[in-house]
């Protein structure tokens, strides 16, 4: 065997969107505000995935204004409607849809007033990027003017929305049930190089194809995939929280090894859109699914490279070396037996 061996592996995966085996729900309020801006209030929790920007995009699209004109009032149990937790890959799906519905209601209030003013059918109104017009006519105004007019007619354009995901519980005997209404699927291919002298594995390339329903923010989705892949890589190759008789022995970053910029492969994200028919937006989610196939793809690639199967994570250099040595011993034993 050469010292540096390369190989490729693939793993597929699936995941459910929103809370598991139960009804999930989220609520939001929206108001078209002075100057053609908007306030959206919902119990959303930005944990870094970019959900606030996603919600601003959704609100902007629904209301016909620009994302930077949207102010999001986020999670405060005494000030915002319940939208529940940041987890279960649920925020874009649950809260995104409730924000869309709240915005539709606010916009409908506004459109009713403007349509009456223009004496056109509200269905002919279109708003985008701060401009409002009536299709098939020359009538147009800015959203700032529209809000002003609406208020002068005595109407504050507010709306509320909520979204439900109808998961059901599992049967206690056979586990049957419909835990989610939306599923996503993913496939990743990893290319690795294994140093057969040190046992070190480097992941050089990773291709990640994920169905996200509908892409709201492409860079945001890629960021979720890249972050998930690198966490998966950490779990595949290096991370290991250990205790000895209950006493943690890896209680600092000097001992608990995390991936750094040097460990990261080139990552190619391929975003597949299979829109969810049960939701107004069609978007599903990506936060957790991104990390599911990474470790098995890497482990399958190690097998392709050096012919050893790592069954216990992480595939540390010691484990990889031991597996290579065992394989060579077996091969030698087989040769002897054959002679």
């Amino acid at each position: 065997m050469q010292r540096k061996m390369r190989g490729r592996g693939v793993a597929a995966s699936w995941y459910g969107i929103a809370r598991t085996a139960t009804v999930d729900r989220a609520g939001a309020w929206a108001e078209l505000d002075d100057g053609g801006t908007a306030k959206v209030v919902t119990g959303v929790t930005e944990i870094g995935e970019g959900i606030l920007t996603v919600l601003a995009q959704i609100a902007a699209e629904e209301l016909g204004i620009r994302p930077e004109d949207v102010t999001i009032g986020d999670n405060d149990t005494a000030r915002s409607p319940e939208a529940a937790h940041a987890g279960a890959t649920r925020q874009t799906y649950m809260i995104g849809n409730s924000v869309a519905l709240a915005c539709r209601e606010a916009k409908a209030r506004l459109f009713t007033e403007i349509a009456a003013h223009w004496e056109v059918d509200a269905g002919s109104l279109v708003a985008f990027d701060g401009e409002l017009r009536a299709e098939g006519t020359n009538l147009a105004m800015t959203m700032a003017e529209a809000v002003d007019l609406c208020k002068r007619r005595g109407v504050v354009p507010v709306g509320a929305g909520h979204f439900t995901s109808h998961g059901t519980g599992l049967d206690p005997e056979d586990g049957s049930g419909a835990p989610w209404q939306a599923y996503v699927f993913g496939t990743q291919v990893a290319e690795v190089e294994v140093d057969t002298v040190t046992g070190e594995v480097q992941v050089l390339g990773l291709w990640a194809a994920h169905d996200v329903g509908r892409v709201i923010n492409p860079r945001g989705v890629e960021g979720q995939i890249e972050g998930g892949v690198v966490q998966g890589l950490g779990q595949a190759l290096m991370e290991d929280y250990q205790t000895a008789n209950g006493h943690p022995v890896t209680h600092g970053f000097a001992k608990y090894i995390l991936p750094t910029a040097l460990d990261v492969p080139e990552i190619t994200s391929i975003l597949v859109e299979d829109p969810d028919p049960l939701s107004p937006l069609g978007a599903k989610g990506i936060g957790e699914p991104a990390l599911v196939p990474t470790a098995p793809a890497i482990i399958n690639a190690i097998h392709d490279a050096v012919g050893v199967r790592i069954r216990s994570l992480p595939a540390t250099p010691e484990k990889v070396l031991a597996a290579i040595a065992e394989k060579q011993a077996r091969a030698a034993g087989a040769r002897e037996a054959a002679e």
């Binding site: 597929a12 699927f185 496939t187 391929i270 392709d304």
Partner: peptide
């Protein structure tokens, strides 16, 4: 619906996967 067929194909194409049975193909693929 199940998009698994689509993501399998997308990953296979993007990575220019060379088909072949699982085995130690490292140097030959």
């Amino acid at each position: 619906s199940a998009s698994i067929d689509r993501v399998l194909e997308a990953a296979e194409q993007a990575s220019r996967w060379e088909p072949g049975p699982v085995g130690m193909r490292g140097p030959t693929r």
